[in-house]
Amino acid sequence: MKPAPFTYHRPASVREALELLARYGADAKPVSGGQSLGPMLNMRLARPAHLVDLNDLLELDYVRNTGGVIEIGGLTRHHRVASAPEIGRDLPLLAEAAATIGHYAIRQRGTLGGSLVHADPAAQLPLVAVTLGAEVVLRSAKGERSVPADEFVQSIMTVDLADDEIVTAVRFPQQLADEGSAFDLFSRRHGDFAIVSVALTLRLDPAGAICALRLGLGGVGPVPQRQTGVEQEAIGCLPDAETAARLARAAAAAITPEDHPQVPAAYRRELVETLTARAFLRAAKRAGVTA
C-alpha cells in the first residue's frame, strides 16, 4: 500500500497554493491533514500527479468571532475545534461533534476544510455545517465566493468545489446562549464511520414550550439531511419524553434509507429513532439554562 508517484509542492502562502492549483488543475490535489486523502492515495483510489501541501498555510488555522458569526479557518484541526473554549461556548454542537471524529491521533491532523471537501456521507462536520446553516468560503486565484453548506455538499464525496479552489474558512452562525444542542452517533466500533448520526438544536419560549428546533441526520442518504417536517412538528410542544418519542418516530418515518445486507433499512430507521430521542432529551436538558 504505497501511493503512486507524485510531484510534491509545499507553498508558503495561500496565494502560492492557489497559483499551483490554477496551473495544474485536475492533475493536482491539495492535501491538508491527509487523514482521508492519505488512505485513498495509499490504496491508489486517488492518483494525482501533483500534491499541493496546505499544511504551511497557518493563516488558515484560526477561530474568529465576527459579531454573531464564528469563522473557522479551513486548516483548523479537529482537535482544536473540539477543545477550543470559545468553540465549546459559542458552537457547542460543533465541538461535541468534532470530538467524535475518528480517534485522538486522527483529530490532531484532520482539518475542518478537508472534512467538508471530502464530504463522506457519514462525516460529522458536513452534518453540523448543514444543520447550523453554515457558509463555506472558497478561494481560487480568481477570487473568493461563499456557498451555503447544504448547497456545497452535492452528493456522496461530491462538493461544489472547482479544481483550482480551496476551502479557506467556514462561517457558522453562533449558537444562542439559551439554545440546547446535542450530537449523537452510532458506529459498530468506537471511532469507526457512523452508521447514523444526529445533530439537534432547540430553544424554549418563556412558557417552556419549544419555539425553534433544528434536526439534521447523517448516514441516511448521500448528503446530510435537515428534517424540516419534524422541525415544524416540534413547535409548541413541551420538551418531554413524550415529545421526544413522537418526534423520533416522525424522523424515522421521514427517511428513505437504502437497504443493505449489513445495514437493513429497518435497522437504520431504528437507529434514527433511538438517536433522535436521545439527542432531543439531552438538548432539552441543556436548553434555557441561561435564559
Binding site: Y8, G34, G38, P39, N42, Y104, A105, Q108, R109
Partner: peptide
C-alpha cells in the same frame, strides 16, 4: 509530530 500524535503511514517524509 511537534509533540502531537500522528500516523506515520499517512504522512510523507518530505512534508
Amino acid at each position: 509530530i511537534d509533540g502531537r500524535p500522528a500516523r506515520a503511514c499517512l504522512t510523507y517524509a518530505v512534508q
